[in-house]
Simulated assay, not measured.
Amino acid sequence: MTALLQVAGLSKAFGGVRAVDGVGFSLAPGEMLALIGPNGAGKSTTFNMVGGQLAPDSGSVRLAGQEIADLPPRAVWRLGVGRTFQIAETFASLSVVENVQMALLSADRRIFRFWRPAAAHRLPDALALLERVGMRAQAARPCSELAYGDVKRVELAMALAHAPRLLLMDEPTAGMAPAERLALMALTREIARERRMGVLFTEHSMDVVFGQADRVLVLVRGQLLAEGTPEAIQQDARVQAAYLGSGKLRQHAKERAHA
């Protein structure tokens, strides 16, 4: 299968510290790829280089064959790379549907055309996106009144507004209850399959990683330690020793086997 995202030889240093050192991987359309590792492993640096927030010192980031490593975040977004954040970014004073309409205005490059009533902009499309993420019934509510799990669903709808080919999710389930986080990522997986949208996500919750990822990348000290299916990563002795701890991995494997 042709790769949607191809990363090769990606490196970044801060002062004398090599935060990322020669990392490479690929991501296929419709695939869920988890990027994990201990604190300081280089996850955030890698993630931000893919999204354009950081320029690499060396290496290549190609989206559908086009080099994007030297582009600013806005240009990367225009090429079809969406993003959600560890702390959900919505407009608390606006209604749920208005938040999605603001994202659609931005996607249509009409965010500064204040003479056109924003409330009328692509309302059916905004409601359709909310329907897909299970938030249609709450379209008129202010985001400030929502439970945090529902805010995350609104953020997902906003990220989908410009129909990204690649979605970057930075700790998408942080602060969520176990049932909420599994539901959110199961929904993301469904949408990724439907849209042939690749998803690269960082995550600390191993139930999410092993339950929803197609493949897992493990970074340690800026280098790629292991890559494979969730099952292979759980059994990898290097990963057990360097990151998760053999007891934790084996316990999770038992829980999945009896689920």
Rank of each mutant, 00 (worst) to 15 (best):
G24R: 10
F85D: 15
Q223D: 01
E131L: 12
A8E: 14
V100G: 12
E190S: 01
S93D: 11
R141T: 05
A139P: 02
V81S: 08
L71A: 07
R181I: 00
A69L: 13
G228W: 14
G247R: 11
V76N: 12
G65R: 07
D170T: 12
M32E: 12
G30F: 00
M32I: 07
H162A: 14
E255L: 05
G175H: 07
L10H: 06
R250M: 06
R193G: 04
E145K: 01
E31P: 03
V154Q: 09
E155R: 00
M197P: 02
R165I: 09
D170L: 00
A177E: 10
D108C: 14
R136Y: 06
L127W: 00
M49Y: 13
L105N: 08
T90H: 13
M185Q: 04
A3H: 15
G59E: 02
L167Y: 04
R221S: 03
A147G: 11
M158W: 00
A118R: 14
V199I: 06
L35R: 06
E171G: 04
G9S: 10
R116P: 03
W77F: 05
L4E: 07
K248Q: 04
L5C: 03
Y148P: 02
I233L: 08
Q240Y: 02
G65Y: 05
G82A: 07
K43D: 00
A120K: 12
